[in-house]
Simulated scan of single mutants.
Amino acid sequence: MKAARIHAYGAIDDIRIEDVPEPVPGLDDVLIRVEAAALNPMDNKLLAGYLKDFFPLAFPYTLGTDLAGTVVATGPLVATVRPGDRVIARTDPASGGAFAELAAVPARLVVPMSADLPLASLAGLPTAAASAWQALFEAGAVQPGQSVLIHAGAGGVGSFAVQLAKRAGAHVTATASAANLDLVRSLGADGVIDYRNQDFTAFATGLDLVIDTIGGETLERSLGIIRRGGKLIGLSAPFDTEGPKARGIDAQFLFHQSDAGRLAAVAALATDGRLQSVIGQEFALADTVEALRSLSKGGARGKTLLMV
Rank of each mutant, 00 (worst) to 15 (best):
residue 201 T to L: 01
residue 37 A to T: 01
residue 280 G to K: 00
residue 168 A to D: 08
residue 140 G to R: 05
residue 221 R to W: 05
residue 129 A to N: 05
residue 237 A to C: 06
residue 16 R to M: 05
residue 197 N to G: 07
residue 90 R to A: 01
residue 137 F to N: 06
residue 122 L to I: 07
residue 154 A to D: 15
residue 80 T to S: 11
residue 230 G to L: 03
residue 223 L to K: 08
residue 46 L to H: 07
residue 180 N to K: 00
residue 277 S to A: 11
residue 137 F to D: 09
residue 254 L to D: 14
residue 45 K to I: 02
residue 79 A to C: 15
residue 10 G to A: 12
residue 143 Q to E: 09
residue 125 L to C: 10
residue 124 G to S: 05
residue 211 I to Y: 11
residue 238 P to I: 12
residue 168 A to F: 02
residue 266 V to L: 12
residue 140 G to I: 04
residue 162 V to P: 09
residue 185 R to A: 09
residue 140 G to S: 01
residue 158 G to E: 01
residue 186 S to Y: 05
residue 93 P to E: 14
residue 221 R to S: 09
residue 116 D to C: 11
residue 103 A to G: 10
residue 73 A to Y: 04
residue 263 L to M: 12
residue 212 D to K: 03
residue 250 D to W: 10
residue 45 K to G: 04
residue 136 L to G: 03
residue 122 L to T: 12
residue 231 K to C: 11
residue 103 A to K: 09
residue 24 V to C: 01
residue 4 A to I: 07
residue 20 V to N: 04
residue 48 A to D: 02
residue 49 G to Y: 13
residue 241 T to W: 12
residue 304 T to N: 00
residue 200 F to P: 11
residue 104 A to I: 05
residue 161 A to S: 06
residue 170 A to P: 14
residue 96 G to H: 06
residue 90 R to N: 11
residue 111 V to T: 13
residue 36 A to L: 00
residue 158 G to S: 03
residue 287 D to G: 14
residue 156 G to C: 02
residue 123 A to G: 07
residue 80 T to F: 07
residue 39 L to C: 08
residue 126 P to F: 00
residue 131 S to L: 06
residue 80 T to N: 08
residue 216 G to T: 01
residue 96 G to C: 02
residue 98 A to K: 03
residue 280 G to S: 01
residue 75 G to L: 04
residue 259 D to F: 00
residue 182 D to P: 13
residue 177 S to M: 00
residue 38 A to L: 08
residue 229 G to N: 14
residue 75 G to M: 06
residue 171 H to Y: 05
residue 68 A to G: 10
residue 108 R to M: 13
residue 31 L to F: 13
residue 179 A to E: 15
residue 93 P to G: 08
residue 112 P to G: 12
residue 219 L to V: 08
residue 108 R to C: 12
residue 4 A to F: 01
residue 97 G to H: 02
residue 139 A to M: 11
residue 130 A to M: 03
residue 127 T to D: 15
residue 292 L to N: 05
residue 242 E to I: 15
residue 187 L to A: 10
residue 8 A to P: 01
residue 258 S to Q: 15
residue 192 V to T: 09
residue 50 Y to M: 14
residue 209 L to W: 10
residue 179 A to W: 04
residue 109 L to C: 11
residue 247 R to T: 06
residue 171 H to P: 03
residue 90 R to V: 07
residue 305 L to A: 02
residue 206 G to A: 00
residue 192 V to S: 00
residue 254 L to K: 02
residue 201 T to F: 00
residue 193 I to D: 03
residue 170 A to R: 01
residue 306 L to Q: 03
residue 152 A to F: 02
residue 114 S to L: 09
residue 117 L to N: 09
residue 188 G to N: 04
residue 223 L to C: 11
residue 285 L to R: 10
residue 49 G to R: 03
residue 105 V to R: 00
residue 291 A to C: 09
residue 237 A to W: 09
residue 230 G to W: 03
residue 228 R to H: 13
residue 174 A to V: 05
residue 91 T to H: 08
residue 176 A to W: 00
residue 294 S to I: 12
residue 176 A to F: 06
residue 250 D to L: 06
residue 25 P to K: 02
residue 157 V to N: 01
residue 44 N to T: 15
residue 193 I to P: 11
